[in-house]
Design a protein around this nucleic acid. Structure first.
Lengths: 341, 341
DNA sequence: GCAAATACTTTACGCGCGTAAATAATTTAT
DNA sequence: ATAAATTATTTACGCGCGTAAAGTATTTGC
């Protein structure tokens, strides 16, 4: 690794003594060439530190190994975590993942999809923004690119949907809360960005009905993606107004719960199931941070592994040509019992 | 928007009635063509929904508008936040940012840089992994691509360094803690991934000396990037062994502090400055989550805006040809007083 | 040792667009 | 209206690589 800089495959082919088409074949699959030539090329790679330009590679290829991963908001640790998971699975399967975030902005989401087209992806794993998404743009994209929808479903869009069973989430944790204490109130945002929130409210209402309790939904104001702050402010208001009809609050998601916990702390309201506690708080999502709240948050957690596994596998199968009708896979959550409820 | 699908600029040029080179010029800068032709092209864009392939665009361009942003770990909300900030500044300046994460893996960091080369970036904003980074690979990359280092400095690598003044961080918050109560112990990881940690320990030692106090450093075991858990486990141990010589603990970073807070909760140790509290805990970073711990975490916060602004501006200047010698800009942190200390 | 099979080289074109140079058309100024 | 300036078109090549076809060399089986 000292000689002059190799600028392209042509030059590399010259110094390696192997023709360019064969070199190209090698980089596509080292096993597709004879051992002796493979050795020569690998020696030259080592010596000249050459790597083909990945974008030029994909330019004229029938099928690329590119996979796009799109999430609504990377600053939300939940999405960061699931995205990291998906990236790993793509790499393990020999694909080349590229991560994008819409940063909570529908216009950016559309732009991301447009850019994604340019890289001729073999497939895309897309978690839509939700309510705010440009439906028409999403549909057009899905017509052109094999797209698997995850996290939040949009009708029968794309190849399939893989996500969590939000109905089961809320039913299950509501059940738990009812059995172990007073029935929960439901704490949510009035205008949630994510359609999963609606399912969770529905599930709460129906679970409460099943148990014969009167449901009580507290919907707090607030726009945007600062859920913790919305939960904190809404929590203060609810606590001040004594809006919670019972001593138990089930939050629509963990980030709201985290904000509510802070509000409780600030009002000197003890949270937990101990005798000195006046309120129980539970969340939903299994947010990476929920383990470290005080008290640690009882929640119902996404099965990150299962969701990412199913989503990735479903996409890869579709890429490999296994056509199957659209279907929705909803994976159950696991109750994580901690001190908050 | 109904006609047949336009596949490339050639076809688009045909249907728009404008020659391809002019169309190309238009997409590069709509103002560079006559109003009347601009109108025609824009009408055709609307009608046929055509967008040029961004990767083909950059293939043969002298200077692209691509900017790579590389962080060590996107699942850390601190990096997610600073990355989002940088992305926005790039967009505002007319650049096209692409975000990469090394996922805490030095090998992946090198791979990311190799891929980055393929997109012929005008410049790169790089937060190195730190200790684990492949120094040689980083140096080579910086020789080829205008690279600005942020967050964690590596000697005189790249165009310049912009980051926080870790020395000031620790001095300042140590000063605050000393003035308002017992002098702090310093809680850190034994083998931190990030070199900033060393500066912070040094700053602590020197600040304590200045005040005439005996410093006490508690270094806890733990590998990897799960700082909260490391802080929690280490916290339990330290509390059990009564390792903290005073009632005040300054953590090397907020994530460790968050873990320590959880350990305190789990041991029923009241944290804060109230009369019923037995320990004060402070962090460093101004982590997005620090506002929502219980008690809310007193910390010294990065000036996210200033760091990202200076970093982006410095890179853009270098891209514009303003050569200036390597320099290090370290921005002061702001003390954020909350209830934990 | 020979034919068949395999692997490689040569040649040539394509991907989608940037860009340069010469020419033609259009605008603006006079 | 005419010359000068501006803008558009035509033509042609380049970026770095994929890929197909035809021919040549090497390996393998018997």
């Amino acid at each position: 690794m000292a000689e002059k800089k190799i600028r392209n495959m042509e030059e590399f082919s010259a110094v390696s003594g192997i023709s360019r088409p064969t070199v190209s074949k090698f980089f596509n699959n080292p096993d597709s060439v004879r051992q002796s030539t493979r050795a020569k090329i690998e020696a030259a790679v080592e010596k000249y530190d050459y790597r083909p330009n990945i974008f030029a590679m994909n330019q004229n290829r029938k099928l690329t190994k590119n996979v796009g991963i799109v999430v609504p908001l990377l600053t939300d640790p939940y999405f960061a975590e699931i995205a990291r998971n998906l990236e790993q699975r793509c790499l393990d399967a020999g694909y080349r993942p590229t991560l994008f975030s819409a940063h909570g902005d529908p216009a950016l989401e559309v732009e991301v999809l447009d850019n994604l087209r340019s890289m001729k992806p073999a497939g895309v794993l897309l978690a839509p923004l939700g309510r705010a998404s440009d439906r028409v743009a999403l549909e057009k994209f899905c017509q052109d690119v094999p797209t698997l929808i995850f996290d939040s479903s949009v009708d029968e869009l794309g190849l399939a949907f893989v996500g969590s069973d939000n109905f089961q989430f809320t039913s299950h944790i509501t059940d738990y809360l009812c059995r172990t204490g007073e029935p929960p109130c439901f704490f949510e945002m009035k205008t949630p960005a994510n359609p999963n929130a609606h399912r969770r409210r529905q599930a709460y209402l129906s679970a409460m009905e099943t148990f014969g309790y009167t449901p009580q939904v507290i919907s707090v104001e607030g726009e945007g993606w600062g859920f913790e702050e919305i939960g904190r402010l809404g929590g203060h208001q609810a606590l001040a107004n004594r809006s919670f009809g019972t001593n138990t609050v089930l939050c629509s998601n963990d980030r709201l719960a985290i904000g509510l916990l802070t509000a409780c702390y600030e009002r000197n309201v003890r949270v937990g199931r101990g005798p000195d506690c006046t309120i129980r708080v539970a969340g939903q999502d299994g947010h990476p941070h929920s383990r470290y709240t005080c008290p640690p948050l009882t929640t119902i957690s996404h099965d990150y592994d299962a969701v990412s596994k199913r989503a990735a596998e479903a996409l890869f199968e579709a890429i490999d040509g296994d056509v199957s009708p659209w279907k929705s896979t909803r994976i159950e959550g696991k109750l994580v019992l901690r001190d908050s409820a």
